[in-house]
């Protein structure tokens, strides 16, 4: 993919990242020393990846066409819908890793710190989009419903059961 088509994605990703950080200012402190690490987020079914640098004074999320030339401490790889589900609390990271639906490489402690920080933040998709509170619950519900149907249609791992408790 050429550089040009990544620009809108870069703009949107950076904006959403800033929104998430603004809503969850404690995330960086929860990461501790791992906030200084560089995380490669690799949606394996997409022609781009992300470099996440959560350091408190200059947090940054960068879209890159390939990880080949990138330096990073840890790589987290899975299909995009799975990664989005992790961000949204629809998946348990441990379970995905143990079933081999998620791959991690590099600094395991940094990955666990990031996992725990994201999980504690309870990130809401509408928050990340920067939507006003009046419409946020509706948008989040619609997003989650759409994502769940997409995951089912594409054969992604089943989400954590939030409803029946029958697992």
């Amino acid at each position: 993919m050429s550089v040009l088509p990544l620009l809108p994605l870069q703009f949107a990703a950076a904006r959403m990242f800033q929104n998430a950080l603004a809503q969850h200012p404690r995330m960086a402190s929860r990461l501790g020393a791992h906030a200084l690490k560089r995380f490669a987020i690799d949606p394996v079914d997409c022609p781009f990846s992300f470099i996440l640098e959560p350091k408190a004074d200059a947090p940054r999320l960068t879209v890159v066409p390939s990880l080949a030339d990138q330096v990073y401490d840890a790589r987290i790889a899975a299909p995009l819908l799975v990664l989005l589900g992790l961000l949204d609390g629809r998946y348990d990271g441990d379970a995905l890793f143990f079933t081999r639906d998620l791959m991690i490489e590099g600094d395991t402690a940094a990955v666990l710190a990031l996992r725990n920080a994201i999980e504690e933040a309870d990130i809401d998709p509408a928050e990340v989009l920067g939507l006003p509170k009046q419409v946020a619950p509706f948008v989040t519900e619609r997003y989650r419903s759409l994502a769940m149907h997409l995951r089912q249609a594409l054969g992604a791992p089943p989400e954590i059961n939030c409803g029946s408790g029958s697992q």
Partner: peptide, 13 residues
């Protein structure tokens, strides 16, 4: 461990 989720049937999970 990561979080699991309470069910909606009133079970004390």
């Amino acid at each position: 461990r990561g979080k699991a989720y309470p069910d909606s049937d009133g079970a004390r999970l």
